[in-house]
């Protein structure tokens, strides 16, 4: 017997969760784009395409206030933001490349300092993953060890069925709880026929071989060759489910304001720039090198994981057409 849910019941489930006070984040139309965003109703769910940005913003918003300050005659007063106030959340329709990413980021957000802004959202979020039945020519999850039907990172996993609806597989206790709490919306079916999974046209990359080359080639003519056209726009980092660097800026006046944690990108020329004008990464190819090194060497050295889930967004979004797969293949050839 397999648990299944119809498309209509999935939308009813979303309505029911919202009614209970749960925040539901899922792909929805935002003008010409699809984005992961809080839904007001199940009708808004849009599962026909990969959202423009990844689902990481359900845990790590593009921009969030981390404190507020106020200054009066008695001095400066600082008001902390309490992560305990974050709502219970269900992330619905996360593609395998997006569902796998938050678990990779757990390592950095808890390795020493515990970033409760991220970790509390992780604790309070149930991820409902969705298998991909269509891939485009930028998708490359198999190259980094995932697949269009990989359940890594999902709590509950949906597989689209022939004739509509989804097979539902509880992957974790959180997923089981979601099923149990709304059992009337799910059906038990004896025979189900899943739609065939998508088949991204991508060979598996030898990540160990790539890392081995990176270990010994911090200085190499290749960096200039592949990154000379990088415009430093940061689009790749902003679209990436695994990039996680951020900036801390104050916005306000002398009297009052907020401190914000904003996404940032190591590709920006000012990312490492000192006020004195000294810049440890003074050239764009050094910044691009850091991007590749961080994803395929440093993060692996430190946490044993790769900072890439093969979603292909950086390939689709790069304005100068840098294809990370071609970069990795070049490295692989040299390795």
């Amino acid at each position: 017997m397999r648990k299944t849910i119809t498309d209509e019941s999935l939308r009813l489930l979303i309505n029911s969760l919202i009614k209970e006070g749960t925040r539901v984040v899922a792909p929805k139309k935002a003008g010409a784009m699809t984005l992961y965003a809080p839904l007001a109703a199940g009708d808004e769910l849009t599962l026909d395409s990969l959202p423009r940005r990844s689902a990481k913003e359900a845990f790590f918003p593009l921009c969030e206030n981390i404190l507020a300050y106020r200054k009066d005659k008695d001095g400066v007063k600082i008001k902390d933001i309490d992560p305990a106030s974050f709502p219970e959340t269900v992330l619905v329709g996360a593609r395998p490349c997006d569902a796998a990413a938050p678990a990779i980021l757990d390592a950095v957000f808890s390795w020493d300092y515990h970033d409760e802004f991220f970790l509390e959202r992780r604790r309070k979020t149930t991820i409902v993953g969705l298998a991909c039945t269509v891939a485009d020519d930028a998708c490359f999850c198999p190259a980094v060890g995932l697949s269009p039907s990989d359940t890594t990172g999902s709590d509950l996993f949906l597989t689209p069925l022939t004739g509509g609806g989804y097979a539902c597989e509880a992957v974790t206790g959180k997923g089981e709880a979601l099923l149990a709490g709304h059992s009337r919306l799910f059906e038990e079916r004896e025979a189900v026929q899943p739609l065939p999974p998508a088949e991204p046209q991508q060979e598996k990359l030898d990540l160990a071989r790539i890392k081995e080359w990176l270990d010994g080639h911090f200085e190499d003519p290749l960096w200039e060759e592949i990154a000379s056209r990088c415009a430093g726009c940061g689009a790749c980092a902003f679209l990436c489910p695994a990039c996680h660097c951020f900036d801390i800026v104050d916005e306000g006046t002398e009297g009052k304001g907020v401190r914000r944690k904003n996404w940032d990108a190591c590709g920006f020329s000012k990312f490492t720039n000192h006020a004195s004008g000294h810049n440890p990464r003074d050239l764009q190819n050094k910044r691009y090198r850091n991007r590749i090194m961080h994803k395929f060497k440093y993060y692996h050295d430190k946490f044993g994981q790769t900072l890439c889930t093969g979603c292909g967004r950086c390939v689709r979004g790069c304005p100068v057409g840098i294809d990370i797969r071609a970069v990795l293949e070049k490295i692989n050839e040299r390795g």
Partner: peptide, 13 residues
Amino acid sequence: CGVGLCCHCAIGE
């Protein structure tokens, strides 16, 4: 950030 998260001060790993 000062606490090993934001990556601005990264020197290799």
